[in-house]
Simulated assay, not measured.
Amino acid sequence: MQVVVFGATGQVGKQLVKQALYKGYAVKAFGRNVFTTDLPKDDNLELIQGALFDEKDVYNALKGCNVVLSALGGAFDGTDVTRSLGIKNIIKQMQKVGLKRIIAVGGMGILNAEDGTLLIDGEDYPQQYIPVGREHLKAYEALKASNLDWTFVCCPDIIDAEATGEFITKADYPPVPNKYQINTGNLALFMLNEAIKNEFVQHRVGISN
């Protein structure tokens, strides 16, 4: 299998690269700083320095791949549109290439509350997370409107820690019990497992340690 990791230099992206290589996959690591970031040295790893908003860069990175893994990050104050516009360009180029499968990282606020509304729309949702939550919502809406086989992993607080293999998931809703944290290693492990199992195609996923 050949996978491409967008946001490969972030905490989640590094775990995706490391674990995918461990599984023996051919990996393309895409980002602005891939040559100056401490990524593994491996014959199966191709470093691609490119701009997320550049159509040609993204198109070329997608060619030959089976699965897209998106771990796009950015600021939390709403001024950074990397998540929403970046995913839109990835979707557009995937459709041109003919690639269908994408697993992307989002935020917990985009999951359903018990009454069927979104958590982000609740009165008690933390105000500091609303701007980035709106970015995640735009990314989710773009995926939902596409013809792709997408999975949107809606994460609580992401902790920079290795995989333990102990985590829970639920389609479209927060998992129960919910510890409101997920290790980067466990998140990457879930995403790579989902690339094979395809249990949550065209679903959001709640996840927790």
Score class of each variant (00 low, 15 high):
79 T>Y: 04
52 L>R: 06
60 N>H: 08
60 N>P: 00
59 Y>P: 02
71 A>D: 08
49 Q>K: 15
54 D>T: 12
56 K>I: 15
80 D>W: 10
75 A>L: 14
80 D>P: 09
76 F>G: 01
55 E>S: 12
63 K>E: 12
69 L>Q: 10
80 D>H: 10
57 D>W: 01
80 D>E: 05
60 N>K: 13
61 A>V: 12
65 C>M: 08
83 R>S: 07
75 A>I: 02
73 G>Q: 03
82 T>I: 11
72 L>C: 09
64 G>H: 04
76 F>S: 06
73 G>K: 04
55 E>H: 10
78 G>F: 07
63 K>M: 11
54 D>F: 09
51 A>D: 10
62 L>A: 09
51 A>R: 02
63 K>S: 11
64 G>C: 02
60 N>G: 00
77 D>E: 00
66 N>W: 00
78 G>Q: 10
57 D>Q: 00
51 A>Q: 05
53 F>K: 11
65 C>R: 00
61 A>T: 13
67 V>A: 03
75 A>F: 05
54 D>K: 13
50 G>L: 11
66 N>D: 14
51 A>N: 14
73 G>W: 01
69 L>P: 11
77 D>V: 00
49 Q>A: 14
50 G>T: 13
58 V>Q: 09
77 D>F: 00
75 A>G: 13
50 G>Q: 09
75 A>N: 10
51 A>K: 03
67 V>D: 07
68 V>D: 01
56 K>A: 15
69 L>E: 10
82 T>F: 07
71 A>R: 03
51 A>S: 08
81 V>C: 00
79 T>D: 09
57 D>E: 01
65 C>G: 02
59 Y>H: 13
59 Y>K: 12
72 L>N: 03
60 N>C: 04
55 E>T: 06
61 A>F: 14
50 G>N: 12
71 A>E: 05
62 L>K: 01
64 G>T: 03
83 R>C: 07
78 G>I: 08
77 D>T: 00
78 G>W: 10
74 G>M: 05
68 V>H: 05
64 G>V: 05
76 F>M: 07
52 L>F: 04
53 F>S: 14
51 A>L: 06
71 A>N: 08
63 K>H: 11
72 L>S: 02
74 G>P: 02
77 D>S: 00
73 G>I: 06
82 T>M: 12
60 N>R: 07
63 K>I: 15
78 G>E: 10
62 L>G: 02
59 Y>F: 13
63 K>P: 07
53 F>H: 13
64 G>P: 01
69 L>Y: 13
75 A>T: 07
63 K>L: 13
51 A>Y: 04
75 A>V: 03
53 F>L: 15
62 L>Y: 01
60 N>D: 11
63 K>Q: 15
53 F>W: 10
68 V>F: 06
80 D>M: 06
62 L>C: 07
55 E>R: 09
67 V>Y: 08
64 G>R: 02
59 Y>D: 04
55 E>D: 13
73 G>V: 01
71 A>L: 13
53 F>T: 12
72 L>W: 02
82 T>S: 15
83 R>N: 10
49 Q>V: 13
52 L>V: 11
70 S>E: 07
